[in-house]
Design a protein around this nucleic acid. Structure first.
Length: 478
RNA sequence: GCGAGAGUAGCUCAUUUGGUAGAGCGCGACCUUGCCAAGGUCGAGGUGGCCGGUUCGAGCCCGGUCUCUCGCUCCA
């Protein structure tokens, strides 16, 4: 982690001031860990989505997209393991404030006992867990004299259950309504549609299904701005492969996804891989691509070798075959899966924190000043081109508006004739507009304008006829 | 969830021990100017996060609550 001052508060303030991100329900003092995207934020976010979709779907003949619903049949979450694995009872030690999973705490204690004693303790624990008998579990912890490894005391809170999934009811008549969950991950929408997509898109293994969508997790505590939100958006792709080939495909996607990041042009030291040592219940290999956020290296994207866990599990619970007939091998099998899953909001924060710069400058009268500039990759910038008549007289606005009409069907433009030219440049810097053109009196005579570059602040003269192609070329990333 | 800090105009902040709320920037109109946050005139904008208590009187003291930041914690 860098030793510079933490720029996160400055980024948050900047996001609010320039219409990137607002706290949700701001007039009611916000809702914890929920945020809204503003006029510039939604453009940036859409551009990130487009870069991802284009490089993952459109550039691959064997990857197609879907858009699955947020509500899914409750059995989905039984099959995926979310119901069984993510509702664990927890307990806190009052002195150390450390929180433990109850089963982990008791298992650790059992390991210190003799074999027979340990086994009988675990058996007892399982019975209580199945019965959801939290009082009994609490009593068990007390009678065993289990103490906190940190504080050494036996001063425990009540046992509480934390379920990561939000639930709601489908059906308007209360007693007939059935409980459904807001999906905690988008992946299952792909797995349950595996055969629908494979058949209708006429896909042959290896092939992928991609999706961008919202997911919801009732985090115990959510922090660090839009890094961990209760409602968030994922961009993920499940790649279906022949069993036994997962190692090579895992390596393939690991490299492909890192290349995707590096193409944005941020310093490559800002990225690193983090291999998972302890694997989730579905994975046989897993790693994160981490980014150096203002609060340190944190997970940005996960790449998981999910084996056939999900498809097999759905096949078993639904009773529907989810196998693929491989004409090369002349046999049926349940495909293996490599997943790439990236947080859209985290990518947004990555782009912002990598682009945010405060530069010391001096104004024309010699005073010290700070230029705040968002050095977005041009492809991601909310506005590509600002069109600025030097004055609002002498026919300059009219010519500027002609240029604006010509350009705005090709990329996002912003027309501004208010305030001094210097102030207008700075406003565009603050929202990361890569190019500003200025229409002056010479423009009327020789049909040229000056184009000003955001990062260097240098200007060059250019024929009006060349503007569109110049910008189009600069905002091309793929 | 725990600990610390913060919350006053759109933004950044000020109001020296409690006495009817201010500045700069920004915003809108007009004038002047014309290449890196320019000057002038006028104007809009605040039940001081919210609720309660103490007091003749609270932005300031006390309690509660909400939100944000930082550190823990949590994290498929």
């Amino acid at each position: 982690m860098t030793q510079e001052k933490n720029i996160l508060p400055a980024i948050i303030a900047h996001c609010k001031e320039y219409g990137f991100v607002f706290p949700s329900s701001d007039i009611y003092d916000g809702l914890s860990a929920v945020y809204d995207y503003g006029s510039n934020g939604v453009e940036l976010k859409n551009n990130i989505k487009e870069y991802w979709w284009k490089s993952m779907v459109r550039m691959h003949d064997n990857i197609v997209g879907i858009d699955a619903a947020i509500f899914m049949h409750p059995a989905t979450w039984k099959a995926s393991g979310h119901i069984d694995n993510f509702s664990d009872p927890m307990i806190d030690n009052k002195e150390s404030k450390k929180r433990y999973r109850v089963d982990h705490l008791i298992e650790a204690h059992a390991a210190t006992l003799s074999n027979t004693e340990g086994e009988s303790l675990l058996k007892k624990m399982d019975e209580l867990l199945v019965a959801n008998d939290y009082d009994g579990l609490h009593q068990l912890i007390q009678t065993c004299g289990i103490s906190c490894a940190v504080s050494g005391t036996k001063n425990w809170t009540e046992i509480r259950q934390f379920n990561l999934m939000f639930s709601t009811k489908v059906g308007s008549v209360a007693e007939e309504a059935s409980e459904v969950y807001l999906r905690p991950e988008t992946a299952q929408g792909i797995f349950v549609n595996f055969l629908n997509v494979q058949k209708t898109a006429r896909m042959k293994i290896p092939f992928g299904i991609a999706q961008i969508g919202k997911a919801f997790r009732n985090e115990i505590i959510a922090r660090q701005f839009i890094f961990r939100m209760r409602e968030f958006e994922q961009m993920e792709m499940q790649f279906f492969i022949k069993p036994g080939t997962q190692k090579e495909w895992f390596e393939h996607w690991k490299q492909t996804r890192l290349d995707w990041h590096l193409k944005l042009g941020f310093a490559k030291e800002k990225y690193r891989f983090h291999n998972h040592v302890k694997l989730a219940h579905y994975a046989d290999a897993a790693l994160d691509i981490e980014f150096d956020f203002p609060f340190g290296f944190k997970e940005l994207e996960g790449i998981h070798s999910r084996t056939d866990f999900d498809l097999s599990s759905h096949q078993k619970l639904s009773g529907k075959k989810l196998t693929y007939f491989d004409t090369d091998e002349n046999k049926h099998y349940v495909p293996y899966v490599i997943e790439t899953s990236i947080g859209l909001d985290r990518t947004f924060l990555m782009v912002l924190s990598a682009s945010y710069c405060e530069e010391k400058t001096t104004t024309t009268d010699g005073a010290e000043d700070t230029r705040i500039v968002l050095k977005f990759p041009p492809a991601l910038a909310p506005t590509k081109l600002a069109i600025l008549p030097l004055t609002k007289k002498d026919g300059l606005p009219e010519l500027a508006k002609l240029i604006s009409t010509e350009c705005k069907s090709h990329f996002a433009c912003f027309y501004d004739e208010k305030d001094s030219i210097g102030k207008r440049y700075r406003r565009q810097d603050a929202i990361g507009t890569p190019f500003c053109i200025t229409i002056d009196h010479q423009s009327l005579e020789d049909k040229t304008i000056t184009i000003r570059h955001r990062d260097s602040m240098t200007q060059e003269r250019m024929p009006i006829a060349k503007i569109k192609d110049f910008v189009l070329e600069k905002i091309q990333l793929i």
